[in-house]
């Protein structure tokens, strides 16, 4: 099974670093994940494991998990499709994309963002059972205890709602 970690266009080095740390790789391995793909975006800190000496992609094996790391791709659609589990920053665009594909999702709001409304979104969706919200220290525990089968399917886009507002406002209804 494959897990995809994404930080979108943001810089969220603690999540990138944590995702290839031993505790998380152990947790993933224990749940049957053998491949991890990490989109690190604007990852800054120098690490031997991720993007050594300016390379754009790196592959390695750590703690029994195949680790692949890279910065950006024009579209993440293919990565979402390949993955069985997605671990993501709490950007609303990523959340909508992943939930609409029916994939299991753990979101980790970036705690360094000021006025963190991303955390509110993550918690509201977690409370409704659509995804898991976690902090970085909690991530191994959430991975070990999660039950993707119990996640509540996210409803498809219902375009008729906005069309109705507009029709109403413009005198059609």
């Amino acid at each position: 099974m494959r897990v995809f970690v994404t930080v979108g266009s943001t810089q969220f080095d603690p999540l990138v670093a944590a995702s290839i740390s031993t505790p998380i790789l152990h947790a993933l391995r224990s749940r049957g994940y053998t491949n991890i793909s990490v989109q690190c975006g604007n990852f800054k800190s120098v690490s031997d494991l991720v993007l050594p000496s300016g390379a754009e992609t790196t592959n390695s094996v750590k703690d029994g998990v195949n680790v692949e790391a890279w910065r950006f791709k024009p579209t993440l659609q293919e990565e979402y499709e390949l993955a069985d589990l997605i671990i993501s920053h709490a950007g609303s665009g990523t959340i909508l994309d992943v939930l609409r594909m029916g994939k299991a999702l753990i979101v980790v709001p970036n705690p360094t963002l000021l006025h963190n409304h991303q955390a509110e979104l993550a918690e509201a969706l977690a409370a409704r059972g659509h995804l898991y919200a976690s902090t970085i220290p909690d991530l191994p525990r959430v991975i070990e205890s999660m039950d993707a089968g119990k996640l509540v399917p996210f409803p498809a886009l219902d375009g008729s709602r906005f069309q109705a507002v507009l029709d109403e406002e413009m005198g059609y209804l």
Binding site: S92, L96, E120, L121, L166
Partner: peptide, 14 residues
């Protein structure tokens, strides 16, 4: 124009 504003899906509490 009539003006319609839709707050972002990302805004839950504020």
């Amino acid at each position: 124009p009539r003006l319609i504003y839709v707050e972002s899906f990302a805004r839950v509490q504020s």
